[in-house]
Nucleic acid binder design. Sequence first.
DNA 1: AAGGTGTACAACCGCCGATGT
DNA 2: AACATCGGCGGTTGTACACCT
Length: 230
Amino acid sequence: MESKEAKPKVKKGLWKPEEDLILKTYVETHGEGNWSTVSKKSGLMRGGKSCRLRWKNYLRPNIKRGGMSQEEEDMIIRMHKLLGNRWSLIAGRLPGRTDNEVKNYWNTHLNKRLPSGKRKGTDSNPDQDDNNTKENKSKRLRALGDSQPTGNTSPIGSTEELEGKNQEKEERSAVSDVWAQQDAQSMMNYYIESPMVPDNNATFVFDDEPFLAYWDSFVLFESVGCGGDW
DNA sequence: AAGGTGTACAACCGCCGATGT
DNA sequence: AACATCGGCGGTTGTACACCT
């Protein structure tokens, strides 16, 4: 059954400069948020999500456009080594860069450089494919965020999963290991010295869930709270 | 010069958690 | 408590452009 009020047609596809201008003006006037109403009130025939994405990725102030610097590139690779496809977290370490941009950059530039890189699959490493299926994604992220080192909430539970995890570890360590290892060491040193680390978290296992679980929230905190280098 | 193929990047989709009612 | 809505995230697709034959 069609709705009685004619559904406003949602426009799709590339944004035109005029649309950008409308959106930018609207957001600068009314502020961010309520994206679902933006399209109506601004006259843009775009979905709220589309508006939000456009603003977030391209129109927001302080967005950095253009090629990645060597430093940024290094950071992406290191962070990806540690975090996997957690683009928003990675982007949080790169001022002016968005998760979408980081993701695209990884998929087009960095992914194929790595030994295990493959072209079309957006997941760089075969070892991470399983963990990034739609079914597993949410569980994994939640577990990484919430799990305690000794808890049973890890997404890795069954024997098969453990085996897969071990394999993942091996394969992952084969990628970009030179500075990934250097960096992991320096990150851990930094981290261990941090007053935020609880005493009962003494056993760190890099590349394993316990470390990642804490690391994750640490990165999140860092990206939100501090802008400094480390 | 024209058509085919590959690449880079913008945008959309589906899912999920948080929040409001 | 249940449902609806919104915002955020990562995966995937679409498209314009560059390059090759």
